[in-house]
Amino acid sequence: MNKTGEIGAVILRLVLGFTFFMHGYDKFQGGIDNTAGFFSSLGLPGFMAYIVGGIEVVGGIAVIIGLGTRIISAIFAVIMLGAILMVKIGNGFLGGYELDIVLMAVAIYLFFKGNTILSIDSKLPKRSFKTVEEKL
């Protein structure tokens, strides 16, 4: 990827991380018990609010610094899919799930992209995983 593409990927990583961090922070700042009650009203276990909020805060920071970007981005994409299907789909695209779709798309992009410049991930040694066939 050229330098311009790398800079774009870093911008996407920073924006995604900050956005999720702020959403998680807001869940705890606004009273996580309220969020747990909302989750319960959707038929989800209330404790999931703590898990999702924690993932958003800790995962947001990790994505900002570029640590575990692929894994956390995949988790963010799943969270967004859940938010769309459980909460937002009935509101339609505009005023409903348009932001969630964009965040999910950015998370999926970063999942496939992997390491970017200016990330901790890019400084770690590369691991190679053998396929099942190679192990046999």
Rank of each mutant, 00 (worst) to 15 (best):
A105D: 04
G68R: 03
L136R: 14
G5S: 11
A77Y: 05
T116Q: 15
I84V: 12
I61W: 10
I51V: 15
G53D: 01
S128W: 14
Y109A: 15
K88N: 02
K135F: 14
I75K: 04
N115D: 15
L118K: 05
K123P: 00
F18P: 00
A74V: 04
G5C: 04
L94N: 12
N2V: 08
T131V: 06
L44R: 07
E6T: 11
G90Q: 09
L136N: 13
V52F: 03
I65W: 08
F112E: 08
S128N: 14
F47M: 06
G60P: 13
E98F: 04
M48T: 11
G53V: 00
F28P: 01
S40G: 11
I32R: 10
H23C: 13
K113M: 02
V52C: 01
G59D: 09
R127Q: 15
F112Y: 08
V132E: 09
I51Q: 11
R127P: 07
G46K: 02
G90F: 10
L118P: 02
D121G: 05
Y97K: 02
V102I: 10
G31C: 11
M22Q: 10
I61P: 02
S119M: 03
K130T: 13
E6K: 12
L118G: 02
I51W: 03
E56T: 11
F18D: 07
M1V: 14
S41C: 04
A105N: 06
K27R: 13
A77H: 07
T116R: 14
G68C: 14
A77F: 11
G24I: 06
G24R: 06
S128A: 08
K27S: 12
G92Y: 12
V57N: 06
F76R: 07
P125G: 00
E98R: 02
K3V: 02
L42P: 07
M1Y: 06
V132Y: 09
M80I: 00
E133N: 06
S119A: 10
E6C: 07
V87R: 07
S41Y: 08
V52R: 04
F39V: 02
R127T: 15
I72N: 00
A74E: 03
T69N: 12
F129S: 06
F28T: 05
A107R: 08
G68K: 01
E56W: 03
L124C: 08
K130Y: 09
F39N: 09
Y97I: 01
G90T: 02
P125W: 06
A107F: 06
R127W: 13
A83P: 03
D26V: 06
I7Q: 06
V132P: 00
